[in-house]
Amino acid sequence: MTSKTLRRLIEEKPFVTCPGVFDLVSAKFADRTTADALYMTGYGVVASYLGLPDAGLATYSQMLDRVQIIAQTVHKPLIADGDTGYGGLLNVHHTVRGYEKAGAAAIQLEDQQNPKKCGHTPNRHVISVKEMVNKLAVANDARSSKDFLIIARTDARTQLGLDEAIRRGEAYAKAGADIIFIESPESEAEMRKIGMALDVPLVSNQLHGGRTPILSQDKLREIGYRMAIYPTAGLLATAYVLNNIYSALAEDKPVQEPLYDFNEFSSLIGFSGGVGFREEVRLTGSGLSRDLADTSGSQPEVYDRTTITRGAKHHAVQMGASDRGALANDPDPIGTRLAFAEGKLSCNRLRSIRSAKSSCRASMISAFPNMSRLTVRPSGL
């Protein structure tokens, strides 16, 4: 999904709804709904990925990894939390470039001092207006397309009051921000005042459990907002259910909560009717070409070596040096196969090379050091 889609949504739709996602499972579920876009919540990502509070502890590289993998998984535009830009002006430039290249449709940048904190916690402090305006100018210059949107957030309301927060919103819009985010207003009256004061697209942070009232989308639109994000709804619902289920299991009690259907969940994450995978291996010259046939009949895709490493490290096919040499001299490489079945890898030699069937010593990636790309094709091709 291109970032141009999000700009078009903001311009054409009366209101844009963005559920908060924090991992790939939540992203897949949110992507199946009628929501307009998705919001990658920093609070939720840091909690689920690192098990830590949203207090400036996640690095740029860690967050970029989450942006990229979620953006590649979903079809809806993804708004990604970029915190403070992870440092000074050079860091902001690098962050904006990285998020845009990773596939995000928009980046959210805030004016907190480091270390930053969740916007609905106490004792937050903000940088000067000039510093933030400079950051936004750099961010505006760093993006390669104006369709990659910049959301400027101010946390000034809690420390400096609502009027200062509105003043900052005006300054940030003039500095090039496409959408303004006044964090944690504490009443509907304050939200209405923000909507009346700022003639720019506004986003409301509908954080369940936070300081800001949770309003209907019709009400938010009426008082001047064009977009709402819901960072914690899915996260806290998941935490509640997990707490109950794990406690019941520990106490040898029956699970009372309704569970998502296993087959439907398997389908959601890429299995089709529980059918496994078949993998064919071919050596061409000094490199290795591998055709992974997914029996679900999906369209061809390409994965890099990192993706293969992640999948292989838990179920490594072992193969000795002598067998690797045999593979290189295999007169019928198409007849050489590795079979995936029910999460277990086994070596199944079809024709002249049979020794590898029982010989397992080195990992898949070590055995095939020249492997660079994996092409996925439907079964039977």
Rank of each mutant, 00 (worst) to 15 (best):
N134P: 04
N114L: 13
V126S: 11
A137E: 15
G87M: 07
P77Y: 13
G119F: 09
E110Y: 07
N134L: 14
G88R: 11
K76Q: 00
V74M: 02
E131L: 00
G82L: 08
V74C: 01
V126Y: 04
Q108T: 04
P77N: 12
G98V: 01
K76C: 05
P122F: 03
A80N: 05
K135Y: 13
T73S: 15
H125L: 08
G82Q: 05
C118Y: 04
N134C: 09
D81L: 13
V92W: 04
Q72L: 06
A102Q: 12
N91T: 06
H94L: 07
T121P: 03
T84S: 14
V129T: 15
T95A: 12
H93F: 10
M132A: 15
Q108K: 00
L136K: 13
K101R: 15
K130F: 04
Q108C: 06
Q108G: 00
V133D: 14
V96Q: 13
Q108I: 02
A105V: 01
G119W: 03
Y99T: 00
V138W: 07
R124N: 09
H75Q: 13
L90N: 11
A105E: 02
L89C: 12
N123H: 13
K76G: 01
H125D: 15
D111N: 15
D83A: 06
S128M: 07
S128C: 14
A71S: 15
M132S: 14
N123S: 12
G87N: 09
D83M: 00
A80P: 00
K135H: 08
N123C: 12
K130D: 15
I79T: 02
